[in-house]
């Protein structure tokens, strides 16, 4: 019965997933071998198989390895949160970086630093609270007449909020030299100079977000059929949206706390994932898992080598890659309905 086979649950078959995962493994390997410190790929391989000089060993295990792991976490967080935000706003352009969620996160951290706190452990929850504030602003704008139904207008509103928050962040840093010193390398968005210890405070919220996502995936998918249909299937759309906002705040806040504001990953990754996976958000989310880190790590590797021995900020490269996608999506005659 070919028809029955064709209607087996879609989560069982993921054409293309194997290829993406292999590509991701290769990218991780490249991230360990290339750039960030004066150790050649050949020397790095020697370290990986258990040899190498003291310096090469340090570069690979203390610089490149944490950077790669952080790239994985940041990529997953930003890719998944973009897909989630797009699902609840039903807007393919809803990207945490474009809508002010990331900016809210950065602003909250700047305020925290000015108020005198500098403990690295506080940074994560504060960034997440800032992201939550940004999310709530977005959802309020979505409810305004006309804005919610027009994807481009939502992005305009988000850009306005982002610029305002970025301006306020700069103002704060101008006024407070100590905060500026502490945060200067962070506000541009980069994976450079982060330590493994920066990753640890983010892990618990990642687990919570992951668990919540698994719980909410099914009702979230039904929201794509409209609020009334979702209710008819026994779901609570309001509760689903609230949970998703919480997940996005945890993920974007966590990623921003480690890497600083990085835009466009949440736009490009779900865009590619949807192209592969089709309209069901559950499949899209699975594909965001390899695609997110793939984009972040490739961008980071390029950031290390184009102007070596110095580096470009990661955010610059993701924007270079994301802006054309944004233009392409907007220029498409008809925005895809989510």
């Amino acid at each position: 019965m070919p028809m029955l086979a064709a209607t087996t649950p879609s989560l069982r078959h993921f054409p293309g997933m194997g290829g993406l995962l292999s590509l991701l493994v290769l990218t991780c390997l490249a991230s360990l071998l290339v750039g960030a410190g004066p150790v050649s790929p050949r020397d790095a391989i020697t370290v990986l198989v258990g040899g190498g000089s003291e310096e090469a060993r340090f570069t690979v295990t203390a610089l490149r390895l944490p950077r790669t792991l952080i790239g994985l976490v940041v990529g997953v967080s930003l890719g998944v949160s973009g897909a989630l935000l797009q699902a609840i706003t039903r807007n393919p352009l809803a990207e945490p970086g474009l809508l002010g969620v990331t900016a809210g996160s950065a602003f909250a951290v700047a305020v925290m630093l000015v108020l005198g706190a500098s403990a690295a452990t506080l940074r994560v929850p504060v960034a997440q609270l800032g992201a939550l504030g940004g999310c709530l602003c977005v959802m309020n704008v979505v409810r305004l007449r006309g804005v919610g139904s027009d994807p481009v207008r939502l992005v305009l509103a988000g850009a306005a909020l982002s610029s305002l928050l970025a301006a306020l962040t700069s103002l704060i840093l101008l006024m407070d030299q100590r905060a500026a010193d502490e945060i200067r390398f962070w506000v541009v968005g980069s994976l450079s100079g982060r330590r493994l210890a920066d990753l640890i405070p983010v892990i618990p919220s990642l687990l919570v977000a992951g668990l919540l996502t698994v719980t909410m995936a099914r009702p979230l998918a039904s929201l794509a059929l409209g609020e009334r249909v979702a209710k008819g299937l026994g779901h609570h759309p309001g509760l689903v949206r609230l949970s998703i906002i919480l997940i996005v705040a945890l993920l974007v806040g966590g990623a921003t706390a480690i890497a600083g504001p990085v835009a466009f990953v949440g736009l490009v990754v779900p865009f590619a994932a949807r192209a592969i996976a089709g309209p069901d958000i559950r499949r899209t989310l699975w594909f965001c898992l390899p695609l997110g880190p793939l984009m972040v790590l490739v961008a980071d590797i390029v950031a290390r080598i184009v102007v070596a021995p110095s580096e470009l900020p990661l955010g610059v490269l993701t924007a270079l890659c994301g802006a054309p996608v944004l233009v392409a999506v907007v220029r498409a005659r008809r925005l895809p309905m989510l």
Binding site: P9, S10, A221, L225, R228
Partner: peptide, 15 residues
């Protein structure tokens, strides 16, 4: 009722 683009008949019924 509106379905997202590309959703197939069987996928819809599964909901």
């Amino acid at each position: 009722a509106q379905a997202p683009e590309g959703l197939t008949v069987a996928e819809l019924i599964r909901f």
